[in-house]
Every structure is written in structure tokens, then in C-alpha cells.
Design a binder for these strands. Structure first.
Length: 612
RNA sequence: GGUCCCGUGGUGCAGCGGCCUAGCAUACGUCCCUGUCAAGGACGAGAUCGCCGGUUCGAAUCCGGUCGGGACCGCCA
């Protein structure tokens, strides 16, 4: 047939379906086996691949459940053969046909349906598709903006589909886990009063109250506490939270929390139930075993001392060492001054890096500086030699103490930061994290889960004010700590506990303050006056006066949990409709300007011109 | 607000002052092909190298700016 007289492929009609009442499919593309041989079936799906050999055409038909091979021979069924010949990648087909065991030698062990194929009797093209913007049938890296713009195509890819499946299954498992243990899932309101304590709020203008705004919750924290005051005893929610802060690889605007709250609970009650839940989740859905059961509990002090972090990655050792005593008498000005003002010299020993160049050390110094270090000092040990830019300020005795305190062997490099204890520790901790990756020290064969507890209730800001280390509602750990709120708040320990897996902070919680006077005292320490507190937290503070029970809970980040479970480098892939790092949604092209009439109703006028 | 990295046919990469009339793979189109399964074969179409400006005899390549993306700092109770 001359091509010029044939209608274009797109215009040719096979059996073109519009609407109907009969069943569209009898089976999915993942379920047919040799035992179905001889059955008349109808499948629907997308054209995954097409192999045209002339008189015979094979099509891999794909849906969420799997892939099934469809075959048509020109001699046996010209219409079906022609339809399959016209079909292209991602066209949507309905195939009616007979299940047939594949001829010997043509079975495909790579497919769960590889024992059989469908001999097409009739093929209906349910819809056509433009050539997709990227591959659906290959797992290649595609620029994210393009994936998000065409997310409906991207979601058909195995990688994306399996992540959606994982998210669904984990979420569902967690929900059931708590529901089975007597927790009620209660939805909390999404339009609340703005509370400028934490992150920047996303804000929703009110039409009935022009000039006033709701805020989207950064978390249901106050609401879940109020639910406990309401006597509902045990609450769970897979809760959406909104934070208008600059996104990062592990931070998105809309995060999802597993949010749990329990009445009459001690820290141990919360930790035990969460540990049980996460252990089950990681054993059921993780790719690697969990190391250490029950989970180790490490104090915040130990975490800072040994790992220079409140979320230590214990999958490798290289622990932080303290050189303060070893160099206490040094004439090296930077160290001397740091120690004199109550600071510390903190260090790590990097194996085999004794030959590091000045440039290497400068690069590591830059990493240390991101955590507040002013500089980084190196000591390279080789035989009896010590190579260091500052060697002349140290006596042989001091240098040998540095070596023994750090456990350096021949060819090792000791990197040290002198500063206020926490700054020095965090700087070295960040370097430790870097070397763990860079030197391949991380044991990637297991997950390391742990609890960090015994946090201080307050930390000093650089300005010298107090800020809370968890949230302003976390109660003191013991009665002693409660007393310290009035005498020496800096020494008070919090009931807070953090859940850390593989060096990622997946969540945290505490036992809440359930007494108005104590809550107000905490606000006072934080520099929030009674009047301000009464205005900003009126509901919660009032509730504390109406029989608020002791209670506590925890919230964990679902997105980060999924990242760790699936071994992902960023959280965007774990959600169905991600945005870019600047918060732009390439699919919906949002945010966008609002209708001027709507703005008028809301009593709003746009002052800043949007960027073009 | 800041630092760093990246923008080359639809997609993923290479090229990093003249050998570029921009290369490779794949996708796409037409044709051939009766057992393929990442089918195979033949032919073909498709990119002013994100954008603007500068340096140079000459710029995809160097410089500045800008836009977009990513990683990070600030920020994230």
C-alpha cells in the first residue's frame, strides 16, 4: 500500500472506544501465569515497548501491576496486527485475547508473566500519546524540573512508582500500628493562628476578616496537646506540616509527620512504642538489617563529646578526641586563648592522610568553618617527625601528648579546632561526617538507629539569650530540673528524646509541660512575656488550667524516613508532586498571580512587582 | 542575603580557543524483517551549544552579567 494514500497513524481508527458499560479489563498486566492458559482475557495498559518483526508484532503492555507480552500475527488477525503496528510508546490500549503458554525457548524469566503471552483477538486504542519527554522504560537520570513538569509521565517509571508504593505501604503500616494499639487518628485543622516562634509561616488571607490571616501549621504541636487535655488519651496522625523556609535536599515546604501523642506517658513509654514501630518498619521495608536492638540510648553530652553532633552517625568510628589537656601549656596563641576563656581543643585523627597538602587542609578548614570554627590546625605524624604549620609553638612533649591523645599512628593526620566547646565539637563533628563519606568509612550494610536524650532545656544564642533546644512545650526531665528553671535554667535537662538513624535526625519528642505556671516560666526564660504568651498561646495556656493531664509524644519526618529507607539523596522524590529548590512547581506553574477581584475581596493589594 | 557546581538535537553524555560543517548513545520518522523481549538491519530528520554583553583575527570553549536547576551556609521551635 503506498504510504501517501494511507491515513496518518494518529488518524487511523481501530476500534476506538469512547464510553461503555462493559468491563474494561478482566485482569491486570501483572497477574497472568501459565495456569491461566486458554483463558479469554482483556487487559488495559500502556505500550511499554514494541518489537515489530514484520508479520509478527510483540507489545509489552504495562500497568501498575506489571508487564504482559501481547502478540499479533498478520496472517491470523490482520486488524490486531495493524493496530499493534500503529501503537507507539505510552499509547493506552485495551487488548482482548487468549492466554497462551509461550513456545518452548521463548519464555522470559525476567518477567513475572514471562511464562505466557496474550494472543490478541482485538485491540482498542483507548488513547494515543505524544512521544514522551523522557524515557518511561529506562531508569536514567532525568533533570528534576523536567520530571516534575511531566510528573504524570515520570510516575509511570518503575523507580517513581515503587517509591510511591513504599510511601503508601510505610504510611499505612504506621497508621495501622498505632490504631491497633488504641490510638485514634484525628485530623487537626489546617488553618490556625500564626505563631511566629519557629519557622516562617505560610499564610492564608481571610475574606470575612479582611487584613487578618490564618497560618498553615508548622506542626500540629499545640493541637495535639489540646486533644490530650480533651481526654482522647492516644492520638496519631499522618500530618501535613508547612514551613516557609529555604528548601534543602532533606527539607521541603510541605513535610509529612508521623505525629503521636499519649496521655499519662513517661519518656520511656513514647520511646518504646516508637522504637517498636520503626523497628518493624525497617525490618519490613528496609533494604538492610537494623544494627543494635534494643536501640542504644546516648546522652546529648556523649553525642557531642564522641561525635561532635546531636545526630551522630555511628556507622563508623573515628571518634572526636579532646586535646585540651594535652596542649594546655602551649604557646600557640589561638589554642591558648581558647583554653583560657573556657573553650576546648577538639580533634579527629584521619588515618593515612599524613601526606595531605596545604590545599587539602584549606578545603577541610572550609568545612569546619561552616560550623563556626575560625580555623583548622593540622598535625601530620611520620616516624618521629611532626609536620604542622604551627609546630614551632609546641614542645616535643606537647606534640607527643597530641599524638597519644589522638591515637595517631605513622602517616596519620590530626585535625584540630580550638573554640568554645560546642563550636569546636560541631566543627570537628562536621569534618568527621565528611571523612566518613569521603574515605568510605561508613558501614553501608546496616542501619544504625538510636535515641539521643538528656538534652539541655535551653541553649544560648550567639547573642547570649536563651533558646529552647526542642520546642517551648518540652518539660524538664526530673523534679530537680524543674527546680533549676528558677535557679539555673542552663543546667536544666529536658525530657526531650530524638530519634536518629544513620546520622539523620528523623524525629523528636518530649513529655509536655502540663502546668500553666511552669509553661509561663519557660516562656519567661525564653524572653516571652506573660502578656505576649497569653496572646500567642492563649488556647494552650488556658487549656492547661482545665485539668491538663501529664502527656507527651513525638513527631517523626515521613519524608526523611523514606529517604533513609530507600537510600535517597533528597526528599523530593518521596512525594507525589515535588517542587524545585526555589519552591517553584513546574507542573502547575505555581505560585501564580491571583485574580485582582479575589485580592479585592480579601482586602489585599500587591506592592512588590513579581520577578519576570 | 551568601558560597560553590551545572545549563550542548526529545533524553543522557562528550567536546573546554582554530582540527566543530558540533561527536556518541538512545529516543523519533520511513522502509525491510514470522518468535522477539534493551529485537535486528538500512536510510533519514532533528542543536544558531540557556540568554545578554565583552575579550579575540576566530568563542560551545575565556571573562562579566543575567535567568533556570542542584548542593551548601544563614534560616529550619
Amino acid at each position: 500500500m503506498p504510504t501517501s494514500t494511507r491515513p496518518a497513524r494518529r488518524e487511523r481508527l481501530h476500534t476506538c472506544r469512547t464510553t461503555g458499560t462493559d468491563m474494561l479489563r478482566t485482569h491486570t498486566c501483572g497477574e497472568l501465569r501459565a495456569s491461566h492458559a486458554g483463558k479469554e482475557v482483556t487487559l488495559c495498559g500502556w505500550v511499554h515497548r514494541r518489537r515489530e518483526l514484520g508479520e509478527v508484532i510483540f507489545i509489552d503492555l504495562r500497568d501498575r501491576y506489571g508487564i504482559t507480552q501481547v502478540v499479533a500475527h498478520a496472517k491470523n488477525n490482520a486488524a490486531a496486527h495493524a493496530a499493534l503496528g500503529d501503537a507507539r510508546s505510552e499509547w493506552v490500549l485495551q487488548v482482548r485475547g487468549t492466554v497462551r503458554p509461550r513456545p518452548e525457548g521463548t519464555k522470559n524469566p525476567k518477567l513475572s508473566t514471562g511464562e505466557i503471552e496474550i494472543v490478541a483477538n482485538s485491540v482498542t486504542i483507548l488513547n494515543q500519546s505524544k512521544t514522551p519527554p523522557f524515557y518511561v522504560n529506562e531508569d536514567t537520570e532525568i533533570e528534576e524540573t523536567l520530571r516534575w513538569k511531566y510528573r504524570y509521565v515520570d510516575l509511570r517509571r518503575e523507580r517513581s512508582r515503587e517509591l510511591m508504593r513504599l510511601r503508601h505501604e510505610v504510611t499505612n503500616f504506621m497508621r495501622n500500628f498505632f490504631v491497633e494499639r488504641g490510638f485514634w487518628e484525628i485530623e487537626t485543622t489546617m488553618m490556625i493562628r500564626s505563631d511566629p516562634t519557629g519557622a516562617r509561616d505560610f499564610v492564608v488571607p481571610s475574606r470575612y476578616f479582611p487584613g487578618k490571616f490564618w497560618a498553615l501549621p508548622q506542626s500540629p504541636q499545640q493541637l495535639k496537646q489540646i486533644l490530650m487535655v480533651g481526654g482522647l488519651d492516644k492520638y496519631v496522625q499522618i500530618a501535613r506540616c508547612f514551613r516557609d523556609e529555604d528548601p534543602r535536599a532533606d527539607r521541603i515546604y510541605e513535610l509529612t509527620q508521623l505525629d503521636v501523642e499519649m496521655t499519662f506517658a513517661e519518656p520511656n513509654d513514647v520511646m518504646e512504642i516508637l522504637e517498636a514501630c520503626y523497628t518493624a518498619v525497617f525490618e519490613k521495608f528496609g533494604k538492610k538489617p537494623l544494627h543494635g536492638k534494643p536501640w542504644p540510648r546516648m546522652t546529648y553530652d556523649d553525642a557531642m563529646r564522641r561525635y561532635g553532633s546531636d545526630r551522630p552517625d555511628t556507622r563508623f568510628s573515628m571518634e572526636v578526641v579532646d586535646l585540651t589537656d594535652a596542649v594546655r601549656g602551649t604557646s600557640f596563641g589561638v589554642f591558648k586563648e581558647a583554653i583560657a576563656s573556657g573553650g576546648a581543643v577538639r580533634a579527629i585523627c584521619v588515618g593515612g592522610k599524613g601526606d595531605a597538602s596545604r590545599k587539602d587542609v584549606d578545603g577541610w578548614a572550609a568545612i569546619a568553618k561552616t560550623r563556626g570554627a575560625k580555623g583548622l590546625v593540622s598535625f601530620a605524624f611520620a616516624g618521629s617527625e611532626v609536620r604542622s604549620p604551627v609546630a614551632k609553638f609546641f614542645t616535643a612533649d606537647e606534640l607527643s601528648r597530641v599524638r597519644s591523645a589522638s591515637g595517631a599512628r605513622d602517616g596519620d593526620l590530626v585535625l584540630a579546632v580550638a573554640a568554645e566547646y560546642r563550636v569546636a565539637s560541631r566543627s570537628i563533628g562536621e569534618l568527621r561526617r565528611h571523612f566518613g563519606e569521603a574515605q568510605g568509612l561508613v558501614d553501608g550494610s546496616t542501619h544504625h538507629a538510636m535515641w539521643i536524650h538528656r538534652f539541655p532545656m535551653f541553649e544560648r544564642t550567639p547573642e547570649g539569650d536563651w533558646t529552647f533546644s526542642h520546642n517551648p512545650f518540652a518539660g524538664p526531665l526530673t523534679d530537680e530540673d524543674a527546680k533549676l528553671l528558677y535557679s539555673d535554667p542552663g543546667k536544666a535537662l529536658s525530657s526531650q528524646y530524638d530519634l536518629v538513624i544513620d546520622g539523620a535526625e528523623l524525629g523528636g519528642g518530649s513529655i509536655r509541660i502540663h502546668n500553666r505556671a511552669m509553661q509561663e516560666r519557660v516562656f519567661e526564660i525564653l524572653g516571652i512575656s506573660k502578656k505576649d504568651a497569653a496572646e500567642r498561646f492563649s488556647a494552650l495556656l488556658d487549656a492547661l488550667e482545665y485539668g491538663a493531664p501529664p502527656e507527651g509524644g513525638i513527631a517523626t519526618g515521613m519524608d526523611r524516613t523514606l529517604m533513609v529507607l530507600a537510600g535517597l539523596a533528597n526528599a523530593r522524590e518521596t512525594i507525589a508532586f515535588p517542587k524545585t529548590q526555589t519552591g517553584w512547581d513546574p507542573m502547575l506553574e505555581a505560585p501564580a498571580e491571583a485574580d485582582p477581584k479575589l485580592l479585592e475581596d480579601l482586602g489585599l493589594r500587591v506592592i512588590a512587582k513579581p520577578k519576570d
